[in-house]
């Protein structure tokens, strides 16, 4: 039995729990009680208008790929204050999905910096709440490298979540091909 891992990072209220939940075959287990700090999370979440839940932090999902492979999804708040789990979180990870809300772009800066720093492959998915700026504008604002995939998504939809993961794996495959050629 192989266990694979993909990390989904994103700020509070960006839709990361929803994304993990939409593709996971198990109820998204919040590991809140395991290794997070709810008090800070609540303070933060209360600053996001319209967000009523107090659930934050690490989401845990699972996709059984076949008889011998399980893909684990870890949803993590991409902020620097969670740095203490980053290493563990990314160890053995295939890659990462950075979920971005165009209204709070700066929330993703730390994650992207850090992923670039560790040379961890990642894709950026813009969770569309409204008609926001174009993908080109987002790419420019985030100063993304040209080869980093940037896509729109609707985290509520399983198909959209699936597409994000496929995009990441395709990106990984391309990177692999690129490195072997």
């Amino acid at each position: 039995m192989d266990a694979l891992k993909i990390v989904v990072v994103g700020g509070f209220g960006v839709g990361k729990t929803t994304l993990v939940g939409s593709v996971s075959e198990i109820r998204p287990l919040s590991t809140e009680e395991v290794m997070t700090q709810a008090s800070v999370g609540v303070d933060d979440a209360s600053r996001v208008r319209g967000k009523s839940t107090t659930t934050v932090a690490f989401d845990f999902g699972r996709i059984t790929l076949d008889a011998s492979r399980v893909l684990y999804l870890f949803g993590a708040p991409g902020q620097q204050r969670f740095w203490f789990v980053w290493d563990q979180l990314f160890a053995g990870s295939l890659g990462a999905v950075v979920l971005v809300d165009t209204r709070r772009m700066e929330d993703s800066w730390y994650s992207i910096d850090r992923l670039e720093h560790h040379r961890m492959p990642f894709v950026v998915a813009v969770n569309r709440f409204t008609d926001g700026p174009s993908l080109e504008a987002v790419r420019e604002a985030l100063a993304l490298a040209p080869d980093v995939p940037l896509i729109d998504c609707d985290a509520r939809k399983r198909s959209s979540g699936k597409h994000v993961l496929i995009t990441l794996v395709e990106h990984l495959t391309r990177l692999h091909e690129g490195s072997t050629q």
């Binding site: 839709g15 939940g21 998204p28 319209g50 009523s52 839940t53 659930t55 985290a155």
Partner: peptide, 9 residues
């Protein structure tokens, strides 16, 4: 507690 529906966001 389950996460809030994204509509709220």
């Amino acid at each position: 507690a389950l996460p809030a529906a994204p509509e709220n966001e």
